[in-house]
Simulated assay, not measured.
Amino acid sequence: MRDSAVGVDDVTAAFDTRLTELVARRKEHSRAFSTPYAQLWNALERMALGGKKVRPRLLLDAYRALGGTDERAAVDAACAIELLHVALVIHDDVIDRDLVRRGEMNITGRFASEALLRGASRREAHAWGEASSLLAGDLMLTLAHSVLAGIDVDESRRRTVLDIFDETVFESAAGEHHDVWLSLQLESATSEDVLAMVDQKTAAYSFQAPLTLAAVLAGAPSRVVDELTVIARRIGVIYQLRDDVLGVFGDERETGKSTFGDLREGKETLLISYARSDAAWATVAPYFGDDEMGASEAESLRRVIEESGALLFVESLISERCDEVHRLIRESHLPTAMIHQLVDLVSTCDARTS
């Protein structure tokens, strides 16, 4: 146990050390198996130790703001949340058939390329790459659960933590499944459909899980946990709506990704759902979801989306949602430090450019 006077930098360092230790231990164990399996753990280590660490930082900051004092428990929960994120990202890339992540080949791309160089057919190489990714995601998911199950807290609290994790995975899978269904374009997606998918796919694991885990581990009263649950879901939707806007209208130099990746993929966002109701959509509909779509077709799609009023609609909704969540924060029974953190988080989600 450590008191709340422990510095933020100390806790961050403890998190980095613990995450490195968890993955390194399994990477070392993998050497007793096949060479490709050891290579898989090398790839997992790069993924787990890279990235922005948004979710674990959110959990650790909230834990401190809520008066938590058991640094080790919070650090382990933060590690589990990051490992869950890695698992979902890996599986998401398989579902989206992506070969690149964070500007470099992802696990599917890396293992498929290696197999091609060794003489495998393109079909065999891609199957090998996807199999490697699926197993890698499973390994990260299992490790996340194992870390949470081993947290040294009383049994009642551990059960609550594991229940939160279980529901988070369950709901995130529901959101991902719904997202894939919407992308098939077999029926018209309403704004309500898209918002429900976003709420399940993004808000549940990126915001609700870190905040509620922090609250439970800090011993916050149930009223605070309930308030954080509602607020977190609202913030998660704001985050994803902004992400969808940046995915089509953002600055590629800041976002680090193409502004027509979502359009090529046929991602059913609120922008698209709204734009479909405009008569001009029929002129660009064939481009949407086309793997061969070029820059000129993407620009035509962007123009129709903006002229339909979809961009203005989503921006207005983001603004309304920000006002709503600010009201919920003001009216909550959260400690002052937590209120300040959430206000800053809302502003960051709204104004981010990458």
Rank of each mutant, 00 (worst) to 15 (best):
L184E: 07
K267R: 03
L83A: 00
F15W: 11
E124L: 15
V161T: 13
A136N: 02
M197C: 05
S133Y: 05
A144H: 07
T69S: 05
Q185V: 06
D16Q: 13
G219Q: 12
D96G: 14
R234D: 06
E227Q: 14
H326N: 12
E331D: 12
S191F: 02
L135G: 05
R123H: 10
T202P: 08
R102I: 00
D278W: 06
E155P: 01
E192N: 02
Y287T: 13
P286W: 05
L162A: 06
E171T: 15
E187C: 02
R264S: 04
I318D: 02
A125L: 13
D179N: 11
D251F: 09
A43Q: 10
V230L: 15
T190I: 13
R264K: 15
E45D: 05
D92V: 11
L317F: 12
A112E: 14
T212V: 15
V147H: 00
H340Q: 12
A73C: 12
E320V: 08
R64D: 06
A78K: 06
G236L: 07
G129F: 01
V6P: 01
R57K: 15
S206M: 11
M338Y: 10
T17P: 03
V314Y: 06
A174W: 15
A78R: 05
G68A: 02
H333A: 03
A173Y: 12
